Simulated assay, not measured.
Amino acid sequence: MSVLRGRRIVVTRARDQAEGLVRSLEALGADVIAAPAIRIEPLPDDAALRSALADLSRWRWIVFTSQNAVHVVCDSMRGWGLQPAALATGNVVAVGPKTASALGREGVKVALVAEETTAEGVLAALTDAGGLAGARVLIPCAQGAREVLPQGLRAAGAVVEVIPVYVTTQETGNPKGLPDGRGKQLAADILQGLIDAVTFTSPSTVYGFVDMVGAEVARSGQFAAAVIGPVTAQAARDAGMRDLVMAARSSAEGLAEALARRFA
């Protein structure tokens, strides 16, 4: 199927995470431009995480709200001489199927997968599961992550420990395929109507894109902004983007499907 043939679509996802989305778009015939707006960096001090995972029986729930958290935690465990499969204690929660799959590849069986792949969805799933009063909950996450989940859990009586394990920063290198000057050619292409859509998989990718091409270009209305979910959609609106395409499924495949419907 080549429903996106001739469409030039920008992928702003971090360089080492973009493959799935690029593959999904190219399978539909799109001409994909890789312009990573962010990068993921593990935080150097893992002492708090190591202490938290020393006795897994302490935790009623261990909640992973992203694949990034899975990768960083599991890599840290291997660095300590532990196998990530040790997390398979029957109390692991994943924000969605992609995060659950990442855990599964590490040998970790997931007890609960949120239907809605947002912090609000995880909160709803844990609330429905019940027994939060007095329950100890560990959340390894991004530095500066939204407080919706820990605040909601604490309001339900849970004892929550949030441990930042990685940071999302704006990409400072020269994106592959873009000239020196970081994004100048991409900005020019957008203003000339040569870009059909830009994909955003997190609010951070929105912020990084705006930094890359400039606020005026970002709100120029010259491209469709394909967003992976409601939180990212709000970040795009706040940046002045109005032509939004929302993925029905919060995944790379969902984004590609949304663009296929848009340009069919």
Rank of each mutant, 00 (worst) to 15 (best):
A111T: 08
M77L: 15
A48F: 06
L82P: 00
A47Y: 02
W80I: 04
A69H: 07
A47H: 08
W61N: 06
A114W: 00
A69D: 08
P97D: 14
G96K: 03
V108N: 07
T65M: 09
V113C: 03
A47L: 08
A114R: 04
D75E: 15
L112G: 06
L82K: 07
P84D: 10
A100D: 08
S76T: 14
A88F: 02
R78F: 06
A52P: 09
V113L: 02
E115C: 01
K98R: 14
G79T: 01
A52R: 09
V113F: 01
E115I: 00
V110K: 11
A69T: 06
R60T: 13
A114T: 01
L112K: 10
A111L: 09
L82T: 02
V93H: 10
L53H: 11
A69N: 07
W59T: 04
G107M: 09
A86K: 00
H71G: 04
E115K: 09
Q83S: 15
A48L: 12
T65Q: 08
A69Q: 07
R58Q: 12
A54I: 00
A85D: 10
V113K: 01
E106C: 13
V70R: 14
H71L: 05
R50I: 07
A102T: 12
S66K: 13
T65S: 15
A88T: 09
G79C: 02
V92F: 04
L112I: 14
E106G: 03
L87W: 00
T89P: 00
G90L: 08
E115G: 05
A48I: 05
R78L: 08
N68M: 08
A54P: 02
A94L: 09
G79K: 01
V110G: 13
T99Y: 08
D55M: 00
S51G: 13
G104M: 06
V92E: 05
N68A: 15
G96F: 03
A52S: 14
R78W: 06
Q67H: 03
G96V: 01
C74V: 12
D45R: 12
M77E: 14
L56Q: 01
V73E: 04
V108E: 07
A47E: 11
A69M: 08
F64E: 07
S57G: 15
P84S: 10
L87F: 00
L53E: 10
K109C: 05
V93N: 12
V95R: 04
K98C: 02
E106M: 09
Q67I: 13
V70T: 15
